[in-house]
Design a protein around this nucleic acid. Structure first.
Length: 788
DNA sequence: AAATTCTAACTTTTT
DNA sequence: GTTAGAATTT
């Protein structure tokens, strides 16, 4: 460990006195002054407030390249953290390009998690307590394994599974770890949550993880933090190693990540965080916007650099987005500007229902293909994205595009390594590599079906516990002592035999690719999918083939498994041009020339639940999400909403999103929907002619006034009675109840009905909104006034 | 043990 | 309208 740095070095140098690189480097050319400052402020804490599309990644990667070129640090002394593997990969390629591939890759450029793994592997034995600690070879549990493990514990502790499903407990535990709250210090309310078992269960869970020599995702960070806190010598070692720390998407850090960073940055204080408080959209999974707002307090003397020149969008798009986000309180404040051509205003259009919305967007896209929008230049399908709030909205577009034969791709479906067949295959590999992996054993012992059900598994577990061995060994004992009968026994014998032979094969140095194929074939796993007649079976077989192919790039199974537990994505090189459909969350960091933003209705977007559970905080996060959506567009953004939408099989009507009212009029053009449904707002819009002026008048008259909303509501009324509650439901009330009644539910307690759709009630409980079948609630002592 | 029917719920998602 | 998980039947 080298200690060459001068501890008395000033932490920040004023901008004016800053030394500029002796010789102008070619990679610095073309940067604007702010970007240049962001690259050249070398020492001390720096907060780069980079708005959407301001070249933040460029500034960050150039900064890294610059540090390396100036010899301020060797690649191994730079710590660069991102949130996704994709971002890390992109950064790596960009740095390599800037440096002309002359410098070896940066070992410490990666996600919080991948870097934590590297650190933890070196100090694993310091994690845990006497007699029970981690080994450097620990495995990383994914959510699936985590939930299975919790289920076992819940059963062992005799906790009511119905009241506290493992899934929910896993979520809670995740939350605790995100906030870096250890077993000793659970928050009072939540620790008691599980019938007072919360703390006990948590401790049991952590113990179980240690005995399995495993950690979950949350542990990776939390263990690092506790390690640093408990062992100052270890911390110092890492602090000294990382001379410069760079963090991307700082607004998305949670408490654990924040502590992790702060600990590591304390020594050199050369930390550069890049983020945009207006793009913080992950509050619901523990991200703290506060971290970015507090940066200057945490690192006194920090230099704050704002990147405000936007290179992505037209002034019209930028204007609309800026106007919208201005409604949020407590922003750090940035004024984005651009010197691009004005471009087209953001287009706004309403439709009768979600099907009309999908139809219209499909037609628009086809029109682009026909070259009807010459002003935009060429627009290919790859240039178009549809960004939705909730994934169920995607269906309407998939259906429509399928029927008109428009190629599309859905981004953000289950990832390759999360698919069932891949996880099964991986479990086989895991068991081959480490016989102690009991979770892998459980997963595959009866996959494909071997006639080994719960009973058989219990027998195996019993045998294993009796002899103090792992499940595989336990199974061997069961086979030897013939504790099972018939077919199950024979199958189990084959299974144990196969794994045993595979262990031998590993020792004999059989090629891992060949071994993998052999295991999958001989276990009958491949056959299982070959004989499966479900429509997705062939796809699964393809995936398996691809998995085996991916193995080739690694030296052995072990190496592959290590890699996979952290890198959970895969690029499939699609060749044909396709329209992208994804959620707004999935779109962060991406850009498209043409963007469609459907479903801007109150309740859907802003999402009702987000507002109920988080109040203004939730609404502001939704607004940031809207901001992210609009700013993805380079040349044309189109916002649409539908008066009626089918949700959970029932038609519901809603008002246009309140965000629509917040868009500055001067950047919005209201379009007329085709195929009017006789009257309603459509009739009003039909009056609009083609000229700007008329559109303006119409806009002022129509979309900005309560009258427009009334008209919209009246149109909906013709289809039946409508209850105007936050989420309105269009149907006759269930006979026994009316809106406003108080009801009693076995699990959620007392609540108030705020919506009725046939037999489904929307009830406001203390715990939040729930849709519940009328049969499951009792009328409760009423008399309370209805708030609506 | 496997196939079948029934039930209750339903944001956003990375590692 | 769909889906995962539980309950029930075969």
């Amino acid at each position: 460990m080298d200690l060459t740095d001068d501890p008395d070095r000033p932490t920040a140098v004023p901008l004016s006195q800053r030394a500029v690189a002796a010789r102008p480097a070619p990679y610095l050319e073309g940067l604007n002054p702010a970007q240049r400052a962001a690259v050249e402020v070398l020492d001390g804490p720096v907060l780069m407030l980079a708005g959407a599309g301001t070249g933040k990644t460029r500034a960050l990667t150039t900064r890294i390249a610059h540090l390396l070129m100036l010899g301020r640090a060797r690649p191994g002394q730079l710590l660069a953290v991102t949130f996704t593997n994709k971002a890390a990969r992109e950064m790596k390629t960009r740095i390599a390009r800037l440096l002309g591939d002359t410098v070896e890759g940066m070992p410490w450029l990666g996600t919080f998690h991948s870097i934590s793994v590297k650190i933890l592997r070196r100090h694993a034995e310091m994690i845990g307590r006497d007699g029970l600690h981690l080994k450097p070879s620990f495995t990383i549990l994914d959510t699936d394994d985590q939930i299975r493990l919790l289920k076992q514990l819940i059963q062992a502790e005799n906790i009511d599974e119905k009241r506290w499903p493992a899934r929910q407990l896993a979520h809670l535990i995740d939350g605790w770890k995100n906030r870096c709250i250890g077993p000793g210090s659970l928050p009072r309310g939540e620790g008691e949550a599980f019938d007072g078992h919360g703390g006990k269960l948590y401790a049991a869970y952590q113990d179980r993880l240690l005995t399995l020599n495993a950690v979950d995702f949350g542990d990776l960070l939390m263990h690092c933090v506790t390690l640093f806190q408990a062992h100052p010598d270890v911390l110092r070692q890492w602090q000294e190693r990382f001379r410069y720390i760079l963090v991307d998407e700082y607004q998305d850090t949670n408490v654990a990540q924040y502590m992790w960073l702060r600990l590591l940055a304390q020594a050199h204080r050369n930390i550069c965080c890049v983020g945009d408080d207006d793009q913080s959209i992950y509050g619901w999974r523990g991200a703290e916007v506060g971290n970015i707002l507090r940066f200057e307090k945490d690192f006194p003397g920090a230099e704050v650099i704002r990147l405000e020149q936007n290179y992505r969008s037209t002034p019209q798009i930028l204007g609309a987005a800026s106007g919208l986000i201005a409604a949020n309180q407590g922003r750090l404040g940035k004024t984005l500007w651009t010197d691009a051509e004005p471009g087209e205003p953001v287009r706004l259009i309403g439709h009768w229902d979600s099907e009309a919305e999908a139809r219209w967007i499909g037609e628009e896209i086809e029109a682009f293909q026909g070259g009807h929008r010459a002003a935009l230049g060429r627009v290919g399908l790859d240039d178009i994205a549809i960004l939705v709030r909730a994934s169920h909205q995607m269906r309407a577009f998939e259906d429509r595009f399928m029927t008109i034969g428009l190629p599309y791709r859905v981004i953000g479906g289950p990832r390759f390594y999360e698919r069932q067949e891949i996880r099964d295959a991986m479990a086989y590999f895991r068991l081959v590599v480490s016989p102690d992996d009991d979770l892998a054993f459980e997963r595959i012992v009866n996959t494909p079906k071997r006639g080994l059900g719960d009973k058989a598994l219990q027998t195996i577990q019993h045998a294993a516990r009796q002899n103090g061995v792992n499940l595989l060994e336990g199974a061997r004992i069961v086979v030897e002592e013939k504790q099972l009968g018939g077919k199950g026994l024979a199958n189990l014998r084959d299974f144990v035999g196969l794994i045993g032979r595979s262990h031998m094969a590993v020792r004999d140095g059989v090629g891992h690719v060949e071994l993998a194929e052999r295991v999958l074939d001989e276990s009958g796993y491949t056959t299982m999918w070959q004989t499966d007649k479900s429509p997705d079976a062939p796809g699964r077989l393809d995936n398996l083939k691809e998995l085996v192919k991916a193995l080739e790039e690694f030296e052995n199974l072990q190496g592959f498994l290590e890699h996979v537990s952290l890198v959970m994505d895969r690029d499939d090189g699609e060749q044909t041009e396709q329209v992208s459909i994804m959620t707004l969350h999935g779109a962060k960091g991406l850009e498209f020339p043409v963007v469609f933003l459907p479903g801007w209705e109150d309740g859907l977007f802003p999402n009702q639940r987000a507002m109920d559970e988080q109040g203004t905080k939730g609404l502001e996060e939704e607004r940031r999400l809207a901001y992210v959506g609009i700013t993805r567009a380079e040349r044309l953004a189109t916002i649409t909403f539908a008066g009626n939408r089918r949700l959970y099989g029932q038609w519901q009507s809603a008002l246009p999103s309140r965000f629509i009212d917040e868009l500055p009029e001067e950047h919005v053009e209201v379009l007329t929907p085709p195929g009017l449904y006789g009257g309603g707002y459509g009739a009003a819009m039909a009056m609009a002619g083609g000229t700007r002026m008329e559109e303006r008048v119409q806009k002022a008259d129509v979309y900005n006034s309560p009258g427009w909303k009334r008209m919209q509501a009246r149109a909906a009324d013709r289809r039946g009675p409508v209850h105007r509650t936050p989420v309105t439901i269009d149907a006759a009330p269930a006979s026994r109840f009316t809106v406003g009644d108080r009801v009693l539910h076995a699990k959620f307690g007392e609540g108030q009905i705020i919506g009725i759709a046939e037999e489904t009630l929307t009830v406001q409980f203390e715990a939040g909104f729930k849709n519940i079948k009328a049969a499951y609630v009792q009328p409760a002592g009423g008399g309370d006034d209805v708030p609506f």
